[in-house]
């Protein structure tokens, strides 16, 4: 009985949940330049921080739940809408659609916790830790290059890689999802800053190009 009450409570909260950059939604839309660079905040996602030795038995149990763990820096593992980002040799970020959260009828966190069992490691629900910015368009790379020291050229950064780095001097996880689309995961408290920083970096593309 107590459990169902808790569930309703969580589902009630879901209706008033605001994303960290929701107050920027209009500005993001106004600042996007269709055909050049488009910025939007992504939907809520279920995220879990996993620390486990990937070569151990519990590591393979976790890998069975997520559909594989990434092996080295930049790799993204996972299957069936779940992606597992490499954050460190024994640290991973599991990203799944919002419905996968246990409070909304999913079982991602619970099955990860179950897979880890009593073995050394940890599974932490980080769904509210980071928000998602979707940056896409032919100028997306140029925008990011203003504040990211990584080599973002397509010959070095392939779609389907995710790197833990700095963009605009703040730590983010940068995932390249397509040839011209990126996903940025800043922590919630940095969402406002990064949103405004990206808008500022995008502003020049609204004006006609000076040859």
């Amino acid at each position: 009985m107590a459990n169902s009450a808790a569930l309703e409570g969580i589902n009630g909260l879901r209706d008033i949940r605001r994303s960290p950059a929701s107050h920027l939604a209009q500005a993001l839309e106004a600042g996007s330049v269709q055909g050049k660079v488009v910025l939007a905040e992504g939907p809520f996602q279920t995220m879990a921080g996993v620390r486990v030795n990937p070569r151990s038995e519990e590591g393979s149990r976790i890998a069975a739940v997520t559909g594989g763990l990434p092996v080295r820096c930049g790799d993204v593992g996972g299957a069936d809408g779940v992606s597992v980002l490499w954050l460190g040799p024994s640290e991973f970020l599991v990203v799944a659609p919002e419905e996968a959260h246990d409070s909304l009828g999913g079982k991602l966190i619970g099955s990860l916790t179950e897979a880890l069992g009593d073995a050394p490691g940890q599974v932490v629900d980080l769904s509210a830790n980071r928000t998602t910015f979707e940056l896409s368009g032919p100028r997306a790379r140029a925008v990011l290059e203003k504040g990211c020291a990584l080599d973002l050229h397509p010959r070095a950064l392939k779609p389907g890689t995710a790197l833990n780095t700095e963009v605009g001097n703040i730590p983010v996880v940068l995932q390249k999802t397509g040839e011209e689309s990126f996903r940025l995961f800043p922590r919630a408290s940095f969402a406002d800053f990064l949103g405004r920083w990206l808008l500022d970096a995008m502003r020049e593309y609204a004006s006609p190009e000076v040859p």
């Binding site: 790197l163 780095t165 700095e166």
Partner: peptide
């Protein structure tokens, strides 16, 4: 000889 931590990356 000094120690460094990749704090914004792999945290190792």
């Amino acid at each position: 000889a000094e120690r460094w931590n990749h704090s914004t990356g792999c945290r190792q």
